[in-house]
């Protein structure tokens, strides 16, 4: 990977993505064997800098760092302070002074990791920024799909839900398109971003049509505040038309898998029976792949930075 940071999927070459997935694959086997590689990042400092709460992603990075032997520190920064930006750049100065090697950033503002990357010496890994990207989520999703389906190329992937506000959707669209999958987005028009088709996806406003023949059904979290008449009239109307239940899933291929980045709103975007189905749902597997993918990313960036030093 010819990058010092991992800020976004957009712009990555398919070979780079492939290399990351292959390395992650090896970490899946390592993790399952119960072994660790604690010498790989020994003496390296990884800081989880979270301006937005996310137990799942933070824990996943923490575990990945520890399994590779890094010293992991978690910093949660409240964004309720008046001047958020000052906090961001002040924090950057602090991190430089701490000689941080790997910086994992979650922020509610699109582009915040890009801004930090200009100011810190560490390799910056975007752990989700605003409505921009969430690159490690897309990588773990791709790894999950590849392990289940044996490939990415030519698969039909339907991404359903609040695409407008979803960084997961953007990263997945870029990654899956780059790897030759056929990507659809399915949502009411008010939850589809402008010019979505220009990202190379087909846009659907009907679950039956959008899921027809799909190999993968990827559900997105719909935040409740969107469903008070702002962009969608109500949660019950949303579930009726766009919530994934077995009736709607029947339009997809018989062996289609169901994914969700979590945390789920059961009964809003996904029916519990589908979410917990041991055959169709790969949601728990996504979590497992998350750790392996993040180990691979940390490994590659640490190597890349060593070369730069």
């Amino acid at each position: 990977m010819a990058h010092r940071h991992l800020l976004q999927i957009e712009g990555l070459h398919p070979q780079q993505i492939e290399a990351m997935l292959d390395l992650a694959e090896s970490y899946v086997l390592l993790n399952r064997s119960g072994k660790t590689q604690r010498d790989l990042l020994r003496g390296r400092t990884l800081i989880n800098l979270f301006f937005e709460d996310s137990t799942r992603t933070r824990t996943s990075f923490e575990l990945a760092g520890k399994r590779l032997g890094a010293d992991v520190i978690n910093m949660s920064v409240s964004t309720s302070s008046v001047n958020k930006g000052e906090t961001l750049l002040d924090t950057a100065a602090t991190l430089n002074a701490m000689m941080c090697d790997l910086l994992v950033v979650r922020h509610d503002q699109s582009g915040a990791p890009n801004l930090l990357a200009q100011k810190v010496d560490a390799a910056v890994i975007n752990a989700g920024d605003g409505t921009h990207e969430h690159p490690t989520q897309a990588l773990l999703d791709a790894l999950t799909i590849r392990r289940r389906k044996g490939r990415l190329e030519g698969l039909i992937v339907a991404i359903c839900g609040d695409v407008l506000h979803s960084r997961v959707a953007r990263s997945n669209i870029h990654l899956l398109s780059a790897m030759g999958a056929i990507v659809r987005v399915v949502a009411p028009p008010t939850l589809i971003p402008a010019e979505a088709a220009r990202l190379g996806v087909a846009v659907f406003h009907d679950m039956a049509k959008g899921l027809a023949g799909a190999d993968v059904v990827m559900m997105l979290r719909v935040q409740r505040e969107r469903m008070n008449g702002g962009l969608v009239p109500s949660a019950r109307e949303y579930f009726h038309f766009f919530g994934l239940d077995f009736d709607k899933l029947a339009h997809a291929k018989k062996d289609a898998i169901v994914m969700h980045p979590g945390p789920m709103n059961r009964g809003v975007e996904i029916d519990s029976a589908v979410a917990d189905d041991p055959v169709r749902s790969v949601i728990k597997e996504q979590v497992e792949m998350g750790v392996a993918v993040r180990m691979a990313v940390l490994d590659i960036l640490a190597r890349e930075n060593r070369r730069n030093v």
Binding site: T131, E133, R170, P193, A194, E195, R198
Partner: peptide, 15 residues
């Protein structure tokens, strides 16, 4: 401005 660039950058657009 709302459009492809706004969508790619994940920034809120103004039509």
């Amino acid at each position: 401005t709302q459009g492809e660039l706004a969508t790619r950058l994940g920034l809120p657009g103004i039509p």
